[in-house]
Design a protein around this nucleic acid. Structure first.
Lengths: 173, 173
DNA sequence: GTGTGTGGCTAACGCCGTTAGCCATGACCG
DNA sequence: CGGTCATGGCTAACGGCGTTAGCCACACAC
């Protein structure tokens, strides 16, 4: 479970996440990451083969947390698409840099814990009654809303709650 | 119209676009861009203040072409959401690197030709009967589908045509 | 007590965007 | 015709990036 990583490696990932969330992806640098840990950049390579491997752990964190959040919502309000969507949006907007890092590149499926991708997807699929195409469409809608919002793509005065409602009501029977 | 740029600057943007589309964003480098033009990297700064300014022109290109494509579809099949969506998807997938460059960061609204953002959005808004929230939801869905597809986020065997259909039918009356 | 692995370090390489400063060409004006 | 000046190249260099090579100190095992 957590034994994917040595304790020191976990500390590094923790620092990387803090750095990413506070300062954004541009500042997530092997040198500044090392600084935060009181070591020099080359020492990081004793724990990870390269920067990408650190980022993969952050992707796994986002996926895991997303799964947890959605599972919790599912337990509280089974079958509710809009409850799932609200939780998805909330978690993504609470961690925008992490969300983009984990989302705006190909999934490193080989390096991820087995089953994690499916686990994060299952609550939505269940809420869609097992309709894969519907689940994918809803996921695309939610992801689109989140990334467009994060990047300030909607007009500055756009009332996005209404757009979420409008989209979700379209998907809901 | 095109006098936003000097002729030489336009050549540079053309080369930048070719480089981006062929080799991806990582290879869109001031040095390799200069190489392609037979000059040295610092010479580029006689024409653009920085790399970002070159990228802004590429963003403007994508926006302009999107507007043109959607306007053409609108003329041919007025009011058809799925025709618009198909054209949007087609253009984006034909230029995936450009689409991501233009889309996965804040819009440089100040540096863009006036009215371009609105122009690209209007055909969809019209097809939605002026319903802003609906148009935003449909846009988010389409954008989500496109970026998830570009980044290989759907399972490799996913039949995405069905997901598009499912989503569009949800939005259509 | 002597290996051996662990986890630091410094120095350096080859990229990156960018700046400073130099120089050739050619247009324009007296 | 001659001087001025903008244009658009150039080289050298800076600081920052990911990364590698190679060294060293310490802890623990046999």
């Amino acid at each position: 479970m957590t034994d994917r990583l040595t304790p020191r490696a976990r500390e590094i990932v923790t620092a990387a996440r803090a750095l990413l969330e506070e300062a954004g992806p541009d500042r997530l640098t092997m040198r500044t990451l090392a600084d935060r840990l009181g070591i020099k950049a080359p020492s990081l390579y004793k724990h990870f083969p390269d920067k990408h491997a650190v980022e993969v752990e952050l992707v796994a964190q986002l996926l895991t947390e997303t799964a947890e959040v959605l599972e919790a919502v599912e337990a509280r309000a089974p079958g509710s698409l809009s409850a799932l969507a609200g939780a998805y949006r909330g978690h993504a907007l609470a961690h925008p840099h992490l969300y983009c890092l984990a989302t705006e590149r190909p999934l490193p499926r080989e390096s991820l814990p087995a089953g994690l991708e499916d686990r994060a997807a299952l609550p939505l699929l269940r809420a869609c009654g097992g309709d894969l195409d519907l689940a994918r469409a809803v996921w695309a809608f939610a992801h689109g809303m989140v990334v467009l919002e994060i990047h300030g793509r909607f007009p500055p005065d756009a009332g996005l709650d209404a757009a979420w409602k409008r989209g979700l009501s379209a998907f809901h029977p």
